[in-house]
């Protein structure tokens, strides 16, 4: 193992992946289904953050909004417009669902940027579930709304007839790769950023390079703030794009 090998050399110890370890909060027992772990803690904090912003922030219902209410309304308008523009007007019924995904991902990403925190969205377990939820929703909605016509998504009617079977195979493969790329993109981005920061932090132990290392960490942190938002945005907008396919499968 790489970490062990470097650990033996003394001084320079890299544990870039240790920040992703799931630990029980109380005691040292094994991690069972209902064990209260650091996952629970940070997901609970995510819920609290979402509730603070979206429920308590808007509790005054003022016509001229305060700071919190402005941000809440901004998030609402942002996602609502995205759903309407990308997925179409008839997708507005899915707006609470998409809003839930967006709020969860964006807050989990930002909370993960707090030093010593645990990033729930950097785990494939989390993002795979999110992506599968989207995939299953899209597939089920597609078949319920369009019946067998949903399969027209894979039959590119604008292509020459000879090419269509080949294109259909490609389309089917790309359709099933969707949840994979959807989930790995989010988790991979966050994991990569956090691991890189940890690697730079490992270099900070050497006095000569530590100023460079601190600068690099700062720069990476800035990039990670951007990435946190952009990945949440991308996840949401791709959900909308897939939903559009389900509602209007004609190519």
């Amino acid at each position: 193992m790489a970490t062990e090998a470097q650990g033996e050399e003394g001084g320079l110890v890299f544990h870039p992946m240790d920040q992703f370890i799931v630990k029980p909060l109380f005691g040292d027992g094994p991690v069972g289904l209902f064990t209260i772990t650091n996952v629970t803690l940070w997901m609970a904090l995510t819920v609290i953050a979402v509730v603070l912003l979206m429920v308590l922030g808007t509790s005054k219902r003022s016509t001229i909004p305060g700071r919190m209410q402005s941000v809440g309304e901004l998030a609402y308008g942002f996602i609502y417009k995205m759903v309407e523009d990308v997925a179409g007007k008839d997708a507005v019924g899915f707006f609470p669902y998409i809003m839930t995904l967006f709020m969860f991902i964006v807050f989990a990403n930002f909370l993960g940027l707090i030093p010593m925190s645990f990033t729930t969205t950097s785990h494939f377990a989390v993002t795979v579930v999110l992506a599968l939820l989207v995939f299953l929703t899209v597939t089920i909605v597609g078949f319920v709304k369009n019946g067998a016509g949903f399969l027209g998504l894979f039959w590119v009617s604008s292509a020459p007839l000879a090419l269509r079977p080949i294109l259909a195979v490609i389309e089917i493969i790309s359709y099933f790769v969707r949840p994979v790329s959807h989930s790995i993109r989010l988790a991979g981005n966050l994991m990569a950023g956090h691991a890189v920061i940890k690697v730079f932090a490992g270099f900070a132990a050497i006095a000569v390079v530590s100023p460079v290392s601190v600068l690099a960490i700062t720069a990476m942190y800035g990039l990670e703030v951007l990435v946190s938002f952009i990945q949440a945005y991308v996840f949401t907008i791709l959900t909308c794009v897939y939903l559009k396919d389900a509602l209007h499968p004609s190519h």
């Binding site: 790329s181 991979g188 990945q231 991308v234 907008i237």
Partner: peptide, 14 residues
């Protein structure tokens, strides 16, 4: 633009 960037970046992430 963001969708395109996300697709391009996803492969790098892979």
């Amino acid at each position: 633009l963001f969708i395109g960037i996300a697709f391009a970046e996803a492969l790098g992430i892979f």
